[in-house]
Amino acid sequence: MNQASTQVVLPDLGEVDGAVVVGWLRCVGDAVQEGDDLVEVETEKTTFVVSAPASGRLAEIAVGEGKRVQVGDRLGNITGG
């Protein structure tokens, strides 16, 4: 079955030197709605909530807690709708 897939990426947070994944708020397999809080990252003493870019199922967590990521990096994947 061919399902639509949407990447979850770290949005452009401005002039920051990347961010660290603090934790995922949902588990692989969870149904998510577009706009749901999905994963928290931290930079500059700031917790930034990355929301789900699409509705569907969280199919993959590509970057786990404690890992450093850069703007545009893929954090995970959402499939279906």
């Binding site: 452009d12 947070l13 401005g14 002039e15 930079t43 500059e44 700031t46 930034f48």
Partner: peptide
């Protein structure tokens, strides 16, 4: 305000 976390801080 420029969508910039670092600038905000």
């Amino acid at each position: 305000h420029g969508r910039d976390v670092k600038r905000y801080v």
